[in-house]
Design a protein around this nucleic acid. Structure first.
Lengths: 242, 242
DNA sequence: CGCGAACTTGATGTAACTCAAGGCGAGTGG
DNA sequence: CCACTCGCCTTGAGTTACATCAAGTTCGCG
């Protein structure tokens, strides 16, 4: 029933690092199952630990942090290949929650096996660290955007980023990709109000940059978009995968 | 001349994880030297790789990301125990720069030896990942603060955080610790203008919460501060160290 | 058909920005 | 020793990007 790691659909469709035979054999043991969830399902919960760690096989989700005052900051739009639960794995508790926004399939690992990953398969431990470094890189970029840029550029940056990631995963067809989120989610990711986000999206639409409708984003003018996003191009190196 | 890892001053003064004898032996080999730098020295440069990785032994610094448009986002106020250069270690380039703001002493490691850390001493590889996870946790918190909170709380959060970190390192005496930064640095960390940061600091001072003068912060009212910062208490677990 | 969730749009308010000017201490040079 | 500059902090005045408030539309669903 469960997908065999050797035939992992991610490595076939996306731009990921290759696995050695030894690594595949290890991952088969390391993987303890698969999980299928519906939209809205809470996968990890801020403040709690978790017995399981996950790699997203398909579907989309959100990571977000809730402040005691009730505000919500979306940390990341989760896509296939993302690893969820590192904080629960090595620390006492998660600093954010994760939930599905579409049907989602996740590879499941045991938190308790994490040490074996370093101990008996250092290549995999290194890959995990690599993933964490990429995450740090992305968060730094997000922080700079949220902290320093005006709304129009924020939204442009977000869509640009999402488009690049989707493209890397082979999820873009005719300059369009699925994006099953609400405007509120984007607003919470960028530190903008819902209303202002809406008006900014309208502006970008009017300018013919892109269109977000019915859970799908279509980019009409890539060069305009990357000019608005104004960020250093992401090197298209293969991503590590757990 | 150089400090022996067995007598590392960090592990003695701060709240860090203990090292086994094997780990100490390994770190002695892993450490290739020490570096002494003056205030203003650039340690790592955004967009470039680096042959060296560092652990801060003493002194303070800044990590910051510069946007193509010239804006600067301060990512972190660097304190002793912080590890610098993970991104250069596992990725092609740094996503941010790092510079000293005081005299600083750094432990120096070779980028090329990083793999040996995973290969021959998985405990250390795990510690590195742990460190990365903590960093991710902190960045998520910073993102939430910059994205969702008003200026008064932002500044309160920042000082609260800095105080906690300094306390963990044994750097607090009489509720005060050194903080050799400019208001502009704090402004760039929080996504505020210099002027507004200044006025917000004046308000906190007037309210008797804390005082920042001559490169030193004195906290007068801890409970008021943590109420303003309004964040989940950081568990005081020992920090990993590289 | 009524209801709720999400999106849209206009009107009004305000937190934070920019501009502008002055103070203060440290360093420099005549 | 004073005059000057320079970096940083401070404060007031005016502006604006974004927030909040308040409707209204559309659409799917029980």
């Amino acid at each position: 029933m469960a997908i065999d790691c050797a035939a992992c659909p991610l490595r076939r469709r996306g731009n990921f690092e290759a696995f050695s035979d030894k690594e595949i054999a290890f991952m088969r043991k390391f993987k303890t199952g698969e999980m299928q969830v519906d939209p809205g399902t809470l996968i990890l919960s801020q403040g709690l630990s978790s017995a399981h760690l996950f790699t997203v096989l398909s579907g989309t989700g959100l990571r977000y942090r809730t402040l005691p005052s009730g505000e919500r900051q979306v940390i990341q739009f989760v896509m296939p290949g993302d690893f969820l639960g590192l904080q629960a794995g090595v620390m006492h508790e998660m600093g954010h929650s994760a939930e599905a926004t579409s049907d989602m399939v996740l590879c499941v690992f045991n938190r308790g096996d994490l040490w074996s990953l370093f101990k008996s398969m250092p290549e995999r431990g290194y890959a995990l660290t690599h993933l964490a470094a990429i995450q740090e890189h992305f968060l730094g970029d997000a922080l700079a955007t949220v902290g320093q840029r005006p709304a129009y550029e924020k939204v442009g940056w977000a869509v640009h980023n999402l488009y690049q990631r989707a493209a890397n995963l082979g999820l873009v067809r005719n300059d369009a990709f699925d994006f099953p989120f609400r405007q509120q989610d984007l607003a919470d990711a960028l530190g903008l109000s819902l209303v202002h986000t809406n008006k900014t999206l309208a502006k970008l639409r009017a300018n013919g940059v892109f269109l977000w409708r019915d859970g799908r984003i279509t980019v009409y003018d890539q060069s305009a978009l990357s000019k608005i996003a104004d960020c250093d191009a992401i090197p298209r190196q293969p991503l590590p995968l757990i």
